[in-house]
Nucleic acid binder design. Sequence first.
DNA 1: CGAGTTTGCGAACGTTGTTCTCGAACTATA
DNA 2: TATAGTTCGAGAACAACGTTCGCAAACTCG
Lengths: 223, 223
Amino acid sequence: MTDEPIWLRPERAATGRPAERSRAEITAAALAVADRGGPDAVSMRGVAEELGTGPASLYRYVTGRDDLLDLMVDATAAEYRLAAPTGDAALDLADLAEQALAIMLRHPWLPELVLTRPVLGPGTVAVLDHVLLILDGYPGPAKLEVFALLNAITATFALGEIAASKRAGHAAAYLAYVAASGERPRVTELMAELAETDAGGRRRERLRELIGNLVDSLPTSAQ
Amino acid sequence: MTDEPIWLRPERAATGRPAERSRAEITAAALAVADRGGPDAVSMRGVAEELGTGPASLYRYVTGRDDLLDLMVDATAAEYRLAAPTGDAALDLADLAEQALAIMLRHPWLPELVLTRPVLGPGTVAVLDHVLLILDGYPGPAKLEVFALLNAITATFALGEIAASKRAGHAAAYLAYVAASGERPRVTELMAELAETDAGGRRRERLRELIGNLVDSLPTSAQ
DNA sequence: CGAGTTTGCGAACGTTGTTCTCGAACTATA
DNA sequence: TATAGTTCGAGAACAACGTTCGCAAACTCG
């Protein structure tokens, strides 16, 4: 039908039979399903069952599964607390990044979606707007780049932490084999070094550091 | 059956009827399908058709679709030219990042897979090993982090370039609406500023810069 | 009270990943 | 050369998925 993004389509019609559910309810149900069973569990049938309806009913609220995923991603953006800028851009952005990390760990399916899906709904735009406020005075393209990289870097960190927490054996298994085989001494050494390091913990500080350097590498402010 | 990664499973059995195809042929077929029709075109049936067989035959070579995607991702790692380090880590890594960008633009389906799929096969390990060589002397966790971020940042850049090239209207449409509405002046200003900037071109230099800063932000070398 | 419009949803279609099954093709052993 | 053992190829089939169709039900408006 329309290929407009869902946020430009009116939620309810003025006339006719009133809808029994709201877009927000659909979104909440999808979030619940994803939090419980991962992103693959977010099927039309799954979300419909969560709502107690048939799969076909969902199509009155979304044009398809993609809309559902878009809604979910944008909904998580509402979980940010957008505090007034302190004047230190690096500090403010690091705070934002930490919040993003926390949100992504709360919704382990998020990083995957955020990385592959260029979602821009009201929630996301609010965060973008806040980044623009923090980076007031910098050139436009630079601001946009920081926003994109902030998402990407944070998602990467989150993916790493999630993979570590569920011992992503699949990828690690071959790495372990290579390390044990001795065919690549540097890999063997790396694995040994990693084994005696407490992997977690310091990651959050490292994120702060990275964001700080990102800001430092920006073109000089115009303000 | 086995949940070992595919690279730890023997390719051919010593006994019984010999296989008509090789793992490499399967991989090549999958790559061809993806390059032609995007990642969604990589279905068991699609790849099988490319090979001129039935879908069921593929399961003699891979345990499922995931294996296919893993093989594809790892195969692209073979496209790197791993030159001997110059001694300047930032320079060598920037070169690697530029190669990665080129590879990803050659295979537009790659960034999406690389970002979401922690693949570690022989090809990927070769690249990891090369990064370890370039960063000789730095602490292990830092080296690993650089490797991860190099992939993530490059993939993000590639995604941006790909999205720009096909005018990803979906996400941009809502942004354009917000900008036009004037509800968020900073967004409106940003869009105006972006319109009069030649978006492409400078991106590659920016990548070099970012990688350079990444190296600079590393803990001091132990060598 | 009709006329017009929108929603809810059972039923169905096409496509997907995957498994079953069994005849065919090979190696190894004798 | 025969026989046993093993592996491969692939047609048929199944479950699950996203999606469409059609119509009864529920509402607003004049």
